[in-house]
Design a binder for these strands. Structure first.
Lengths: 210, 210
DNA sequence: TATCTCTTCGCATAAATATGCGATTTGTCG
DNA sequence: CGACAAATCGCATATTTATGCGAAGAGATA
């Protein structure tokens, strides 16, 4: 028997989903609240459900904040977002907060039921449009920005020294060259990267822009 | 009519899928090759299909390399991986390379057909296990190792200034405080982080250790 | 051979950073 | 109230950086 919880402030929708799911053979839906706060109170006094359907726009605490708190206290609860929002920010914030699925509200009751079953079998239910955005998240980072700053290998050595937090003196020691040579290299590095401080070189390097 | 291409080296599987899809009302599957190289030759001489099913383990070029090349030359082709591999690396490499979907090979023929339709409607077909891994990718970054270096919010501001490559003077300007105050904060930051140079603070910060 | 780039080194100086010591103000909390 | 943390500011000084100018050897290349 899969125990299901619902946090949704629209009474009609909430009741509809609750009744439908509770009616299913292998499902039980007792906890249906209209705010995260109420659900937390409920969880304090009852056994936690296996799955929770969660809206984002809610009175009081947002559903995203709600995921964080619920996942913190009851990590075993699997949370599926059920919302009208399909903007990347809300999607990714939800996933980062710990949601295991993300459905849009036009999802039909039988599809919600399937999604819950899917989730219990190790899947991650998502509306197709959501899946698309999630996947695009990986493809997007393509825009190759770095025109490769052709530093010589020695210059790269020096940069590594800087990133390691070394002073000119220590870099000189590390490569067994004079501190003036280090200065010379750094001067050239600054020219090539169009910067004028260690700080910027380190930042660029750690951001993968070198 | 959806035109479909297949790159799959197992002849039995390839023929099975090709025949099944070609038999569908709104689908046509003419191009079925057993290597990326052959598919590229084919694409040179024919109109590109709308969707391509691609294996990963192939004779010659790997399917992942294949995505890159095909997406480069024919960005309008949507690629669905169809493979036995479910390890994170292969999944993410495929998505980064430009795949729009990822199915495991035990997927049934009708499900493959549905996935293609789903894709054409803006979805991103994935086997449930794959979706799960993709979503976990967002949740994973949690493992907070950092013992939280309890910097005050003002100190964090200063750190951000450093990371932005600003000098003490500019940081003072940014927050409208005196340069001596900046020094004071930096002194405290160094103590808390056990470092003694801007460089180390920037490095720590960009490594997520603050 | 003549010309480049890379790497090395030196000297000099202005600017920025690191650090010590001390002080005031404003909250918060027991 | 008294103790304490956080943020503010000042002054002094030793180090480190940033940058200008110049030079020389090794190796690659036209």
């Amino acid at each position: 028997m899969i125990e299901i919880g619902i946090v949704e402030d629209n009474v009609k929708i909430r009741n509809l989903i609750q009744r439908y799911l509770d009616m299913q053979e292998a499902m039980s839906c007792k906890a249906a609240m209209d705010s995260v706060e109420e659900m937390l109170e409920y969880l304090d006094k009852h056994d936690p459900p296996n799955v929770m359907l969660m809206d984002i726009q809610l009175p009081g605490m947002s559903g995203i904040k709600g995921i964080e708190i619920i996942k913190e206290k009851y990590p075993e609860i699997e949370i599926i977002m059920l919302t009208i929002y399909h903007d990347s920010h809300k999607i990714f914030d939800s996933l980062v907060a710990g949601a295991s699925g993300y459905l849009l509200k036009h999802t039909s009751l039988p599809e919600i039921k399937e999604s819950i079953e899917n989730l219990m079998e190790g899947g991650a239910p998502m509306s197709p449009q959501i899946a698309r955005k999630v996947i695009q998240h990986f493809t997007k980072p393509e825009p190759k920005k770095a025109p490769e700053s052709n530093l010589t290998s020695r210059e790269q050595d020096i940069v590594n020294g800087l990133v390691d937090g070394l002073s000119y003196k220590l870099i000189a020691d590390r490569f067994d060259i004079s501190i003036d040579t280090v200065r010379a290299h750094i001067r050239n590095i600054y020219k090539k990267l169009h910067v004028n401080s260690k700080a910027e070189v380190i930042a660029k390097s750690l951001r993968g822009e070198i």
